[in-house]
Design a binder for these strands. Structure first.
Lengths: 220, 220
DNA sequence: GCAAAAGTGTTAACTATACACCCATGG
DNA sequence: CCATGGGTGTATAGTTAACACTTTTGC
């Protein structure tokens, strides 16, 4: 039997907070089709490679990111999609990753990786706008019933930072008092003795996450 | 460039209620590996075929089921898995489907399709037990925030039947009065003038679903 | 008349929401 | 002293959960 499988690719939506805004990692395509257009980091899955291995390789090659620095990686959905080259139809396994300390060196690769706010996306290649929209929805759901947001915040953070992250992802304002009451009742975070001083106002208490692995925690 | 993709397969978890129990469709494998063992219906995805097209073909060939008779089909997850033949690693795109009127003809194909209660699964091939467990969990979640259960019930049904379906999927008993109060407040189902008579007891009112497409409806 | 499943309300506990002022700091 | 963001409590409405008896039918 001569079995020929469809082209199989992986595409990843890497989220990170930048200035209290939810941002997604985009690269610039160096090859046709969509050469010069921005896109999600992605590429072929080779024979013998798992989807996760391909993801690691692609993020490392195209954005200089090591997967081990991303505290949360989760598969999203598998799209039947247009191929990257004219051979026709392809299948793309998509992943979502959350980061907090990712520093990009836009000159280290020709792909110019950068974080772009999800509420101000440029015109991106393939069906990647759809994938980003799906990832945003998944993330919104995920932070509502797990502690997934830990993966987007630094080890020590203020309640205002935490609230801003929730607000950016949910795309709606939250009441400060109700938010604090709720979050403290969940045993998801713990007070630390440290304070954060920043500008002409009262210093803020710093908190940390009790668990830095994914845990069920009904927030909303 | 000579690009060789991993082997790509599709596997489907088809659910149906049988005697108030949640059942899953299994076939018997006619080829190695796991020849003679039961398994989810599945097979190769060919070049040029979408995952959904492959799913249709596989269900038709191996179980005699036309996809158009399944009111709800949803992609589950894509597993890196063992290959069906010794060439090594494969990628399996899995789907969940819900049915209500599926009648199987176990003699029409050599695959002996049959519905088996999920709480009494035999030893099944590959990583299919894991896939069924994942599908059950997804279904449990899905019926909690959508009307997905419509796809498992006949057009006309009693409140007891509906409650039994929820109980079978959630694997816990529900309070009859609270259940009825809740379901009636959701505008998910509507009374019909018909009654269902069955045995030596009071006849039951028949209801129908207001929507027979997937709709958001917070049930639990 | 009896066995079997259908049908029906109330109360208490909990959860979610709305809302406004004082505090600590730097300049 | 003033501008800035940090921090705090209460009252109401809505939701969930617990619980037992009467009705209608076939035999």
């Amino acid at each position: 039997m001569t079995y020929t499988a469809p082209i199989l690719t992986v595409d990843t939506v890497v989220f990170q907070m930048v200035d209290a805004r939810l941002c997604v990692l985009l690269i610039t395509r160096t090859n046709p089709p969509f050469q010069g257009r921005r896109a999600l980091p992605g590429g072929y899955i080779s024979l013998g490679e798992t989807t996760h291995e391909a993801l690691q390789r692609v993020l490392s090659d195209k954005a200089g990111i090591e997967c081990t620095t991303l505290p949360l990686i989760e598969q999203l959905y598998t799209f039947d999609t247009v191929a990257r080259d004219p051979r026709g139809h392809a299948v793309s396994v998509t992943y979502m990753a959350l980061g907090r300390d990712v520093v990009l060196d836009a000159r280290a690769t020709p792909h110019q990786p950068q974080f772009v706010p999800v509420d101000a996306l440029p015109d991106i290649a393939f069906d990647h706008a759809q994938i980003v929209a799906y990832a945003c929805e998944r993330l919104r759901n995920k932070i509502s019933y797990t502690n997934a947001i830990f993966a987007l915040l630094p080890d020590y953070f203020t309640l205002s930072q935490l609230q801003q992250a929730y607000e950016a992802i949910l795309a709606r304002p939250l009441d400060k008092r109700n938010f604090r009451k709720k979050i403290m009742s969940l045993a998801m975070i713990a007070e630390t003795p440290q304070m954060y001083r920043d500008g002409a106002h009262r210093p803020a208490r710093l908190y940390r996450f009790v668990h830095t692995t994914l845990t069920d925690t009904a927030m909303f």
